[in-house]
Amino acid sequence: MAGPLTTIGFDADDTLWQNETFFRLTQDRFAELLADHAERDHLHERLLAAERRNLGHYGFGIKGFMLSMIETAIEVTQRRVPASVIAEILSTGQEMLSHPIELLPHAAEVVADLSGRFRLVLITKGDLLDQERKLAQSGLGEMFDAVEIVSNKTEATYRSAFARHGDGADRAMMVGNSLKSDVRPALEAGSWGVFVPHGLTWELEHAEAPEGHARFHEIADLGALPALIERIAR
């Protein structure tokens, strides 16, 4: 029988701070740059296909996104994309890599409230340097007992992380905005999975909600997390 809840994992991007918003703004700029070569919807489909193909090569994050934009620009212009457009794509990507952190509502107070009462583990995907930068700027870093920046999030990821930094997956909870990456594989590992929807979620992170699973919960925002934890931890 599972023991009490002792460890809480948090996703970072679009759970603790804004992320997808900046990707969408950059995609809008990308569409403007290539407006003479492709319709916006078609360009979006081509870019998404490139991102899907390239995940195994570049992983998740801004650098892979930049390279996928460049690849898509070369494809839709039949290799005639001007150097000025490539330069602009690189510039917008560099802006993303230096954009100030914008914490989501309740993130700071909830992490502070839970810190010290539970083991807190940040489990996030993306570019190592970029994720480290965002965590440092967020002001939340010292409240986490451990940080895991991983190439992907699977059942094995959570089993391993919660074994190293907690009392095992069955005594842990994962909180995040992605059903595909944060919730479903955590449930498969035996943890609680808490879905915190974000207004914008990358298409490649969409998945069906595991309705009916005893350890699945959905909350409107992070402000509702402490009360949910109190109910579970009784």
Rank of each mutant, 00 (worst) to 15 (best):
Arg231His: 15
Ala112Asp: 12
Pro4Thr: 05
Val76Pro: 06
Gly193Asn: 01
Tyr58Ile: 09
Ser151Lys: 09
Leu90Thr: 00
Gly59Trp: 04
Ala49Gly: 12
Trp202Glu: 13
Gly116Phe: 01
Ala172Pro: 12
Val194His: 05
Leu16Arg: 00
Leu187Asp: 01
Ala172Glu: 11
Glu132Lys: 15
Leu140Lys: 11
Ala189Gly: 10
Met174Arg: 07
Ser178Ala: 12
Thr157Cys: 08
Ala12Glu: 12
Val76Asp: 07
Leu122Phe: 05
Val76Phe: 04
Ala169Pro: 12
His217Ile: 02
Pro105Ala: 03
Glu142Pro: 06
Asn54Tyr: 11
Gly59Phe: 09
Met1Trp: 08
His57Gln: 14
Met69Pro: 08
Ile70Trp: 11
Ala214Val: 10
Glu45Ser: 15
Gly3Val: 13
Ile101Ala: 04
Thr26Leu: 04
Ala146Glu: 10
His213Asp: 12
Glu132Cys: 10
Glu230Met: 12
Asp36His: 06
Thr77Trp: 10
Phe23Ala: 14
Val81Asp: 05
Pro210His: 01
Leu5Gln: 05
Glu211Lys: 07
Asp167Lys: 11
Val196Glu: 08
His106Phe: 14
Glu109Leu: 08
Lys153Arg: 11
Gly141Cys: 03
Leu48Glu: 13
Arg53Ile: 03
Ile89Met: 07
Asp36Phe: 07
Trp17Leu: 02
Leu97Thr: 00
Gly116Glu: 01
Met173Pro: 03
Leu222Asp: 10
Met174Pro: 03
Pro210Val: 00
Ala233Glu: 13
Glu51Tyr: 09
Ala214Leu: 13
Ser151Leu: 04
Pro105Met: 01
Met1Phe: 04
Ile89Asn: 03
Ala146Lys: 06
Ser98Ile: 00
Pro105Arg: 03
Leu120Gln: 06
Leu25Pro: 00
Ala83Ser: 14
Phe10Lys: 06
Ile8Pro: 05
Glu71Thr: 13
